[in-house]
């Protein structure tokens, strides 16, 4: 990966009030506004059907936003341009490689469309394949490639024409877990190296956390939170985000007079008052035989190597997931004392 035939102009992207209603009345997307900085990698994250692909396709030019919406690449309004005039690179979950062409012809297709002569085309395709370490595959037919190889060809094909932005729709979803991790690392390295503005759609929070500069969490056709992976993980905007990004425990609590009553005990509290739901991550619940606020019974213990995931039931009848160190061992029915730092609690209005 030492050669660097491509370094991209970082082009910002802006969506203004883009909504989408499909013929037949399906409202796939509520009006959204979004600013993506040049060179940034933004991940659209959300459950299936929440409108991620629709948003991506509006940016690509494969769908028109409802009247009133507009799409800008830099200062250029591209709303009226069809995809073939937007100069975007696109990578599909199903690869969309042309079965009638070999690997090199697939990669060279965009250059051929641009009227670049045979010699320069071959040179650039060669460079691109070298960068992706795929020279040996140049003359292979598409049906002779593995899923991972196909997706790398698709990436090469999208990048070789130096698109203004790169759009990826669940590029790893069709691959098995092992390949997925490898290719995710490769995509990450590539995006950082090239400095291209990239928008990546996935329903997999692990992928989103690993790749994103910023994550756009979507639900039901709406953006529910935009933030860095750390923001989204540590300061989720609502219980949906907290639950979708990682695991959380949701506890009933009551706050008054600087105290929070939770799990049958009181902790100091500076936040909102009244009846609350509080969220806490499994890794933020400590096991502490001395200062623990509440007693609980282990109902499940799952050894995961680096840690042990416990599910415990408290005296108040609430169930919590807890991460304990991997070396500590537990049996079902053990009694533990748990402690929660108030500053690790996230209060949500009921």
């Amino acid at each position: 990966m030492s050669r660097d035939p491509l370094r991209f102009e970082p082009v910002p992207v802006r969506l203004n009030a883009c909504a989408k209603t499909f013929p037949g009345g399906t409202r796939a997307l509520e009006p959204i506004d979004l600013e993506i900085a040049g060179g940034e990698t933004v991940v659209f994250l959300g459950p299936s059907g929440c409108g991620k692909t629709t948003t991506l396709r509006i940016i690509a030019g494969l769908e028109q936003p409802d009247p009133g919406g507009s799409v800008f690449f830099g200062s250029e309004d591209v709303t009226a341009l069809p995809i073939e005039r937007r100069n975007v690179g696109m990578v599909f979950q199903s690869y969309a490689l042309f079965p009638n062409m070999d690997v090199a012809q697939n990669v060279g297709y965009g250059l051929r469309v641009r009227g670049i002569d045979r010699r320069r085309r071959d040179a650039r395709v060669g460079e691109m394949l070298a960068m992706m370490q795929m020279e040996a595959l140049a003359r292979r037919r598409i049906d002779q490639l593995s899923g991972g190889q196909r997706q790398r060809v698709a990436l090469a094909r999208a990048l070789v024409v130096r698109p203004r932005i790169l759009l990826l729709d669940e590029p790893l979803t069709a691959l098995d877990a092992k390949l997925r991790d490898g290719l995710r690392l490769e995509i990450d390295r590539l995006l950082r190296q090239l400095g291209i503005t990239a928008i990546y759609v996935t329903h997999d929070q692990g992928e989103a956390m690993a790749l994103a500069d910023r994550i756009v969490v979507m639900s039901g056709g709406r953006v529910v939170q935009i933030g860095t992976p750390r923001d989204v993980y540590f300061r989720p905007a609502d219980p949906f985000v907290a639950d979708f990004v990682g695991t959380t425990n949701r506890l009933q609590a009551q706050a008054a007079d600087g105290r929070l009553h939770v799990l049958g005990a009181d902790v100091p509290w500076a936040g909102a008052t009244g009846p609350l739901a509080v969220l806490v991550r499994p890794e933020d619940v400590r096991l502490d035989a001395v200062t623990g606020q509440a007693e609980a019974k282990v109902t499940t213990a799952m050894f995961l190597g680096d840690r042990t995931r416990l599910v415990v039931e408290t005296g108040t009848g609430e169930t919590l997931s807890i991460d304990a160190p991997g070396r500590a061992s537990f049996a079902i029915g053990d009694t533990v004392r748990i402690a929660i730092d108030p500053d690790r609690l996230l209060a949500m209005p009921l």
């Binding site: 690509a60 696109m90 009638n100 297709y109 469309v113 641009r114 024409v161």
Partner: peptide, 26 residues
């Protein structure tokens, strides 16, 4: 999807029809 892929690479309708649609329907 094949056509969308071709369009994203800059191919207009006529080019897509002759380089993607026809060969793959041969």
């Amino acid at each position: 999807t094949l056509e969308e892929g071709a369009a994203s690479l800059g191919a207009g309708f006529a080019r897509r029809f002759f380089t993607i649609v026809l060969p793959n329907s041969l």
